[in-house]
Simulated assay, not measured.
Amino acid sequence: MNSEDKKLITSAKKAAIEVLLHNAKGTIANLPRTAGWGYPEPYTRDLLISVLGIAISGNKELMLSMENVLRTLASNQSERGQIPSIVHDKNNLGSSDTTPLFLMAVGIFRPLLDDSHFLEEAVKKALLWMDYQCPTNYFLIAQQPTSDWRDEQWVLGFGLFVNTLTYSGLKFLKKETQANNLSDAIGQFTSASDTSHSGPHEGLAISDQPYYALWSYKIYSSNRFDLLGNSLAILSGLSTPEKNKAMVKWIEQECKSMAQRKVLIPHLTPNFFPYIQPGDLDWLPRYTDFNKPGDYHNGGIWPFISGFYIAALVAAKEFELAEEKLLALTKLIQKGRTTDLKFSFNEWYKAQNGEPMGQDWQTWSASNYLYAATCVQLRRTPFFDTIREEHLRQSH
C-alpha cells in the first residue's frame, strides 16, 4: 500500500468518526439515528452492530451514546427478555438478531466500563430468552423467515448469522459452557450433506465445502454463501485456522469467477452468493421488486459486512488481501447518492456495477469501516482476538 493509499484511508477513518458523531445526535428520544438523513429511527441492530467501531474509536461522546443505547434497550426489554427492534419502542418486537446483538454489545462494553456486572439483570433475561429459542434442546437457535437483518430474504430454521452471533455474545460474556455447547452444535454437518448421518442432529457445517451453510433445518439446508455469518465464524474462532484458509481461498476464487462473468465488480465481495435467480426453488415473487440478483440481500455489497470480512481476513492472517479489500472498500464508499460528500458510507451497492443504492452516512457502514481499518493497521482484531484465542486453547 503506497503513501497515497494510506492518506486516503486515514481521511476515510476521520470521515467515519464525523459520520458517527453526526448520527449520535438523533431526533428521537435522545438516541442516535441510523443514517445521516434517510433513517432518523434508532434501529437496534444497526446501532448495536456499530459497537465495534465505536468501542475502538476512543471517542467519549460516542461511548456515552452507545451506553445510553444499551441502557435504553434494557429498560425496554420485554417481560420474557427479548430486546426490541427499535431502541425506544418496547412494543416493536419480532427480530431474531437484536437479543444476541445486545448480549454481544454488553459483553464488549463491560471491560471498557470496568464493570463486569453492567446490565446484569437484563443480560440474565436475554440469556433466558435465547434458551427458549432452541426448539430441539440441541443448542442451535431457531428463527422465523425475514426476522434477522435480511428483512427481504428467507432464512429458515437455524440460521448461521444468528447462531454465530449468539456464540460470540456468549463468549464475550464468559458463558463458556453454553458457548461450547453451541459451538459443537454449529459444527455438526447439515443433514442434507451428511449421507452417513454421523451426528445426533443437524448442524451448519457442510461436508464437502469449507464454509458454513446459510441455514439448516431437519433434512433441508441452503448451501448459498453468507459472508456475514461466515466472517463471524472466522472472527469468533468457530472456524479452525485450516478451514479459514480454505474458506478465504474459495471465496476469492468464486468472486474472481463472478467478476469475469460481469456479475460482480472486481475486488469486492457480495454479502451472499450465488445469487437467487428467478426460477430457482428459493426464489420468491416479492424478490422481483425488492431483492433482484445482485441487489439488497440477494448479493448486494454492504460496507458493514465488508468490514466484518476484512476483519476476518486479518484474523485468518491474510494481511495483504485484507489491505487490498480495505483499499477497494475505501474507494467504493466515496460513491454516494449525495454528490457533495467525499465519503458517503452508503448503505449498500449494486454488485454488478458498484452503484450506491441505499442511504448515505449509514451508521453501521461508517462504524465497521473504522473497525476494519483499525484491524488492518494493527494486524489484529480487537475484542475478537481474545475469544478466538480462548476457543483455540480449549480445542487443544
Rank of each mutant, 00 (worst) to 15 (best):
D282T: 14
F384G: 10
G229F: 11
L128P: 03
D385Q: 13
K256C: 02
I28Q: 11
L21I: 00
F319S: 07
T166R: 15
F383E: 05
D114K: 12
F172Q: 02
S367D: 00
Y39P: 08
P270Y: 01
V51Y: 10
F345E: 03
F139P: 03
T177Q: 14
R33K: 09
T146Q: 06
L47F: 01
P293A: 08
D46A: 05
S95E: 12
H117D: 08
K60T: 05
N2I: 00
W215S: 08
L327I: 04
K335T: 09
E323V: 10
D360W: 07
A213G: 14
N2D: 11
T269K: 15
V376S: 01
A366C: 01
L321S: 12
I86C: 00
K243E: 14
V314E: 04
A105M: 01
T164G: 10
F225T: 06
L284D: 06
E252A: 14
A29P: 07
I251K: 10
Y287C: 07
E347T: 08
L268C: 02
E324Q: 11
M63Q: 14
G53Q: 08
S96K: 10
T381E: 01
Q359G: 10
I301L: 03
F139I: 06
W302L: 00
S50M: 00
G157N: 06
L31M: 04
G169Q: 10
T288M: 05
Y217T: 07
L329Y: 11
M247V: 05
S207H: 12
T363G: 01
N30I: 03
V51G: 01
S75R: 13
D208N: 12
V314L: 00
A259Q: 04
W149I: 13
K256P: 05
E390R: 09
G279R: 13
S198R: 12
A35Q: 11
S116A: 05
H297Q: 15
P111A: 10
K14F: 02
T99C: 01
S75Y: 06
G307C: 00
E121W: 06
N244E: 09
T146R: 15
C375N: 12
T269P: 00
A35R: 04
P32T: 02
C375A: 09
E390P: 07
I305V: 15
A55F: 03
T164M: 05
L341E: 13
E61Y: 08
A35N: 05
D131I: 05
D280F: 12
N230W: 12
D289Q: 10
N223S: 15
F172R: 04
G229A: 01
R110Q: 13
V314R: 14
R110G: 08
F290M: 08
Y132G: 08
G94N: 04
K249L: 07
K6Q: 04
A316V: 05
A328V: 06
T374Y: 10
E390K: 14
I108C: 05
S365W: 01
D46Q: 05
L392I: 10
Q144T: 14
V314K: 10
R337K: 13
P145K: 12
G53A: 02
S191W: 08
E67P: 09
S257D: 14
S147L: 03
F139R: 14
P42A: 04
